[in-house]
Design a protein around this nucleic acid. Structure first.
Lengths: 242, 242
DNA sequence: ACAGAGAATTGATCTACATCATGGAGATGA
DNA sequence: TCATCTCCATGATGTAGATCAATTCTCTGT
């Protein structure tokens, strides 16, 4: 099966300017043409297609225009570990910078359009735009911060706290992109959520049911509506929200 | 109590050149004098002294000359989460790059000497040494990789696997610095280990006892000798070793 | 339209680890 | 020197979530 051909305008990637990386740049420099040379819009991926595989040579990072991405790595015995979910406007793919080899596989959870940012061109550009480099580091640092929050979550928190935290994280990230923070479709399966949060599918499912029974959320499969945001927040204890 | 005044030679920080950041630079550029302008040796810290606190403004990253550092963040309800241990030659402190504020508190686990690398000077320098910037990103990326390994560990692995993994990590890191990888002193308490690995002190203690009974290690309090390295390795399943 | 695979929910049972509790061994300080 | 404190070890008990199992629901492809 080929990816369904979505109609792509042959213009440059304006949506990507909304991404964490590009928006501040565009605002600071108003120098969109230079950015356009660096950022390439690629063909949309359909569900389960990979952007890159663990072990692939690292050459680019990616910004999500629409859809969503799951990143996971595979251990020796073949078990997968989901390391992150990425939503529209977010950047992924730096897991390869350390030694030019991707540690994760990145796969589309649904039909997804990404922009590719070739890293070498990016480096050239950042030599002439000094704060670009800083922006980039900030984004990496944000990844570190969010990983460390996940570590806290996994080390200390109960199943309910972990799931509440994930729902709030997604809610907040969608809200930041001007998407509805209270009604959304979870792009990932219960199994992915469980894998990510160190829980089994059954536990995830039970917690969703309990949350629904307690009136925190209303949910039908992947469609979720948060009914009691502050109630959910009270369940969670995190290292100072990012 | 004041920190005991250790005798410090007023020379520049040569030990730091052994650090992950400086060694490759020194080798590539042989331009040690420029580095010396950037890197500052600071007074040794004694046990429990902090390098920086969560909430402090971010201005520098730090390389460890000798001793060891524990990084932890504090959640709303006051509980601590250890996010990392840093050994000689390693760099810490970038948790502040995201928004110029440290997320973690860094505290000395024993008498510890660090070198301070002011970040603004570093940025200036990296403008004229293009690959310096890349080195730095690689170090951050390594932090991301190691955080993600910890996530896998916390999400999937048993108490024994977690502790075996920590012992092997420390062993490997010491080995890389030409220190004994099989006989060392754990600088952190059982409580710190438990906190870091999402276990209780009691469980940590029991696992150490079991490892000793099984002949994997010999240990007296913090002194550890690894007797069966490959045996320990077999206990662990990780995402492709870094 | 139907067959088969995968996704989700719910119940019953089991277990690894947390929790509670106690005692000892080393440090630190009056 | 003794009192206090922190760290570590180990035993007894409880529990959250894993595991095993069964059912329904929803996609996918022919």
């Amino acid at each position: 099966m080929q990816a369904p051909k979505l109609s792509i305008k042959p213009t440059n990637c304006h949506d990507c300017r909304m991404s964490t990386l590009c928006l501040p740049l565009a605002m600071e420099y108003g120098d969109l043409d230079r950015l356009d040379k660096v950022i390439q819009r690629t063909k949309p991926l359909h569900k389960n297609q990979s952007v890159f595989y663990a072990g692939d040579a690292f050459s680019s990072v990616y910004a999500i225009r629409s859809g969503s991405i799951k990143a996971y790595c595979v251990s020796d015995d073949g078990t997968e570990q989901v390391t992150g979910f990425y939503l529209p406007g977010e950047i992924f793919g730096w897991d390869g910078i350390a030694d030019d080899t991707h540690k994760n596989t990145a796969v589309a959870l649904e039909t997804t359009a990404v922009c590719e940012i070739p890293f070498n061109k990016f480096e050239e550009l950042s030599a002439s735009i000094p704060t670009l480099q800083r922006h980039f580091m900030q984004l990496m640092a944000r990844e570190i911060t969010s990983d460390q929050q996940l570590i806290t979550l996994l080390g200390k928190n109960s199943a309910e706290e972990r799931i509440a935290s994930l729902l709030l994280s997604i809610s907040g990230r969608l809200g930041r992109r001007k998407l509805s923070p209270t009604r959304f479709r979870l792009p990932m399966s219960r199994a992915d959520i469980g894998n990510y949060l160190g829980l089994t599918v059954e536990t995830v499912s039970r917690v969703f049911s309990r949350f629904q029974a307690s009136g925190y959320i209303k949910c039908d499969k992947k469609e979720v509506e948060i009914l009691n945001l502050s109630g959910l927040s009270n369940l969670v204890q995190t290292c100072a929200e990012a």
